[in-house]
Each structure stands twice: as structure tokens, then as C-alpha cells.
Design a protein around this nucleic acid. Sequence first.
DNA 1: ACCGTCTTTTGAATCGTTTCATAAATACGT
DNA 2: ACGTATTTATGAAACGATTCAAAAGACGGT
Lengths: 340, 340
Amino acid sequence: MRPASVKDVADRAGVAVGTVSNVLNYPERVSARTQEKVQRAIEELGFVRNDAARQLRAGRSRTIGMVLLDAANPFFASVARGAEDAAAGAGSSVVFASSRHDARREARYIDLFEEQRVQGLLVSPVGSIAARVAELRSHGLVVVLLDREGDPQLYSSVSVDDVHGGYLAASHLVETGRRRIAFVGGGRHLQQVADRLRGAEKAVAEHPGVSLEFLPTEELNVLAGREVGQALVQRSRHLLPDGVFCANDLLATGVLQSVLLAESLDVPRDIGLVGYDDIDFAGSAIVPLSSVRQPAEEIGRTAIRLLAQELEDPGAPHEHVVFKPELVVRASTGTPGARP
Amino acid sequence: MRPASVKDVADRAGVAVGTVSNVLNYPERVSARTQEKVQRAIEELGFVRNDAARQLRAGRSRTIGMVLLDAANPFFASVARGAEDAAAGAGSSVVFASSRHDARREARYIDLFEEQRVQGLLVSPVGSIAARVAELRSHGLVVVLLDREGDPQLYSSVSVDDVHGGYLAASHLVETGRRRIAFVGGGRHLQQVADRLRGAEKAVAEHPGVSLEFLPTEELNVLAGREVGQALVQRSRHLLPDGVFCANDLLATGVLQSVLLAESLDVPRDIGLVGYDDIDFAGSAIVPLSSVRQPAEEIGRTAIRLLAQELEDPGAPHEHVVFKPELVVRASTGTPGARP
DNA sequence: ACCGTCTTTTGAATCGTTTCATAAATACGT
DNA sequence: ACGTATTTATGAAACGATTCAAAAGACGGT
């Protein structure tokens, strides 16, 4: 049975379709008596507005689309929560999709959201999507990039200084006496990874005698970290890094698990470990993780704010908000100078 | 500038609108020459289909809506991932929204999805939404409930035997010598909480001399666990529980943090701790957490399968899949008999 | 009863896509 | 060259909500 339409409601209430629409959208224009009749008809028929029809007429939807890198990473869950709260305050809804670091999945969801004519799009992009964003913009869609700074001509963005974050992490490892640093993270094509690595390289360059090694992974989750960790612990002692910096806390958690499983090795004694994001679990890891904190919820809230600004005044110049990350020191790196 | 429509494409390509539509939907019906003309026009104009119009015509969208209890809980992220994979295999997209254990937010998102005429709805409900589901069903919307068994007349569901899970957890605590058990979890109005508690009660009842105490929390996250933990450690020793079972791993993680911060207390020596869900972080907690494992991704996949089944054959009887949870023993409960 | 003002209601037109009956074009057999 | 079969292309109608100019109704004043 086809769902009821305004026409059905109008017939049953004995009024015109325009009146039903007015009851729904401008009740103050309709007499109390008529409103009541219409309301009753709506309830009797179980009428639910058809959003597709509304949207078609309005030319635009009331939802905001958000494409996240990885919904399974609590960091992004926090960003999403911040965005959701801010949007709810402004009367919009946010729907999410997770690209899982896969450019094709990302493209699919961006297409989907564009076809849905969402109000705007928040994207934490997998690779370079400058071209795609330019296209979206030329179609009139407002896009805010998350966790990625870029062409100020094209879009607004909210990001965190990843180079600085990488620098903080690696510097800290060096300062706690580490000399052979390893950076664990997905490929260099991921900008977050590339930037954090760049920051680490910079820190290492400032200290002669300190080496930096890059250990790429397929994915950026706990399992991938565990695999890297297993490979590490099988190395002969003189090839083993004494400091490991992971591109996120999931990887760090996995590395930690593997290293501790190797009975002869200890964190922070033999390996100092730093993660990234400072998710809730970092502080309660088997050895509490030092980590680089990003203001996740604030990133989400800010992104919605920038989006709202651009929707209101499409001509306004794009804004780029860059947050500073912050190093949180915990047991996984020991205390400076505490090593022999 | 208004986005290009099929009409615009048709004009530019010098064909009829129906032909453009055919190029998009039934290319085999269109000659190669015409296809080429149309494709060129599409590219030149940057034409993107308007999903609202398609949907309006089709009467139904191509996406599946999913309302989760808490996107920040890695367990639900895994369920979502399973669902997404299964749906992608069937050519549908899944969009998510997080109710965060708030019935009003849940209602808002369900309304939104209903107005969007989604293909179907997956919901892990906050409270009892039997009435709302009945209404949705009567409007012809297919609903599958997650993590909740219920009226077999109304809907299909995928759940895990939470009573059994609670029983497993509490039994294990008792078997490792605990006598004063505390159950930590949000209010009894949350069915998962109520069921797990019921299972625990059953286990305790089988062992005379063992007591069970219920410690409700506002939320079900790490912070809430930390707060309960802080309250616990301030108790005088004879009122302190020696076994704590948490309704999920987030709570358990928080409790663990607080207990370990109290220098005089140790897990598992003074308190045995069991969580629920066995998220990736449970195994790498400061003291690896014993936990009750649920097959998260499989729950998501199964839900999509049931949904697809019902869409295909609306008359088919509703199916209720119930998975069995599984206890994973780790250090946080020590080994049986290892205590004085 | 009539006029002017203000409130309420009406319903055709519109948004962009798909469908489908019909028309046009093309190919094929004799 | 002609008729028939087959392949392509056409364009009006439909989906359901909103808009808005115009009509209808209500009311007070004379």
C-alpha cells in the first residue's frame, strides 16, 4: 500500500492540498478549526512527509554529509560527535559514511552525497582530492575539509598541525634518550602520515646520531600495529629501534601488545612508544601511552561553524583553522633521563 | 547557478530527455553515436543526477539507514562495518546516525530516515520502541532490530543472548573466588543492561554467600566508568566489592583506570574485572581485560541479510537470529583458584 | 446593501527524473 | 522497390510537496 500523500490528507480533511502544506509549514496562516481537521487526517492516515519531494521542490536537502576516514577510530567518532552537536544546534542533521582509507569508497560516498544535494559536505580526505573538490565547488556545493589544509582558494578547512605533532613526538623520544627511532604508519600517500613523518624527520635532523626508519602498514588499525610489532620483536637486538612513533593510537596499541608479548622486551625500558590522537583508551593501555592530542570534538564543531558561515555568505573568503597538537606524556616513554 | 538537469543535457546533446535517461539507465537501448553525444554533454555541463527526483519517481531510495546506540563505542563501529560491507555487496549504501542512548535523538533520526523513505532501517534501540516500530511497519518500512530480541510478529532481529553473557561473566568472577560482586552499567531501562544484570543475578543466585550490587551510571563511556571507580576506591575495605562486572568495555576501562590509580588496590588481586563486547582495546588494557565477546561484524552482516530477505519477500515470516556470547579470560580476573 | 480591509483557502504550476506508448528510422528478405 | 521486422528515439505523464497569485470569506463601518 502506497504511503499517504498530502493529496490523500487533503481529500480526507476536505481541504485543498495547499492548505495541508500550510498546516505543516505555516500553521499561523491557517484557522484553528482547519488545522484540527488536517491534523486528524494526518494521524488517521499515518502521513509522513516525503523528503524527496520536499527536496526536489526546495532544490536542496536539510542534511549535512560527512565522510570520515575511519569510523572505527575513536578519534573520528569524537570529531563526528562534535559536528553532530554543533549541527543539531543549528537545526541540521548530519549523516556519516566511512571511507576506511579507501579512495574508491570515498568517491562513492561523495557521489552519493552530491546526488542527494546535501547542504554541505565535510570530508577528511584519503588522498589528494583537490580536483574533485574543485568540481564539487563548481557545482555549488559547499565543502569543508577536515584534518587537511590546502588550497585556500577552493575551500575552508579545519586541521591540526601534523608536522608539529610529529615533531613533538619524535623530539620527546629523542629527549628520553632514544637513538634509533621507527615511524609506523600507513603509506606516504596519506597526508596525515606524510606530515607526521616529516615532523619526525625534522626533529631527528636536529640531533646528530639519531636515525629514523619508516615502517609502512597496509591499514591503520590495532591489527596492523600488532603485525608490525611482531616483525620488530624478531629483529636482532642491534637492529631493534629503541623508540617507536605510531601514526595513531590504534597502531601504537597493536605494537604495544606485540612488544609486551615478547617476554624479553619491555616498554618503556627497551622501546619508548608514542601514539597519536590521545583517544580515551590511550591512558588506560597496558602501559599508558604517550600520545599527541588533537582537539577532536572542537575540530568537528569548528567544521560545522565554517560550513554554516559559507552557506550564509557564499562570497566570504575561505577560512583555515589550524589547531596546535599537544604532547601528553605517559608511562610508555618513561621519564626523561631515566634510562641508562 | 542552478545545477544542470536532464533537460539541459538533452538540449545540448540535441536529443530528447527520455534518451538521456536511457543513456544513464539502459545504455544498451541507445546507439553508440547517441551515447557519445549525450556523454559529452553530461561532462561539459557537469551534470549530476538529482537523487531527490529519482527517488520521488521511484518511490523509494537506495540507501539503508542505521541508528546506532553509540558511534564512539568500537563495538558499534564494528557492527556498522559489517553492515556496510554486506550492503555494498548488494549495491546499497548505508548511512549512520548515533542516538547516544538518547531516546529523543533516536526518534529524530528515525523520523528523518522515514521521511527519506530509506529502503530499510537498522536500529539498535535505546528503550522500548515497539510502538514506533509497529507504526513504521504499518507504513510499509522494513525494520530490523539490532541487539534486541522482541515481538516476532513485528520485525526481524539480530541479537546476542545478553542474559547468558551476564551469566558467563558473573559465574567466572565467582569461580575465581569473588564473593562481593558489583555490576556497573547505565540504568535498567536499557535492555542490554537489564539483561546482562539478570544473567549476573542468576549466576549469583546459584552460589549462596555471594552478593550482587548494582551501580548505575548516567552514560556508558570511559568517563562514567572512571567516576564509578573513584567512588568505589573511597569505600572502606569491607564494603569494597572484590569482583566488578561492567556492562561494556568502555566502563570497564574507566573503572580500571580509577582502581589502579588508588595505589593500595590492584587488579586482579583485590578486584576482579570483567567487561563486555571484547573490543580491540580490551586485550591491550593496562591490565588486559576479561570480556564477553560478541560477533560484532557478523551481527551487522546478518542484519543486512535479514533486511534484504524481507525486502525481497515482504510476506516472509520474521527471523530472529540470536548469537551466543563467549567469555574471553585475560589477566583482569586472574586465574581460577589463584587467590587466597 | 455596499465597500474596503484583512484573513483564510484554493489549486495550477513547478522542481528533475523515469516510464512507456507511440513514432521514426533502419535493416532485411523477396 | 516494397513490406515487414527490429532497433532507436520521442515526449507527455507521473511521482509528492511547496509556492503564490487569485478567489473566497469574514468583519466593521457607513
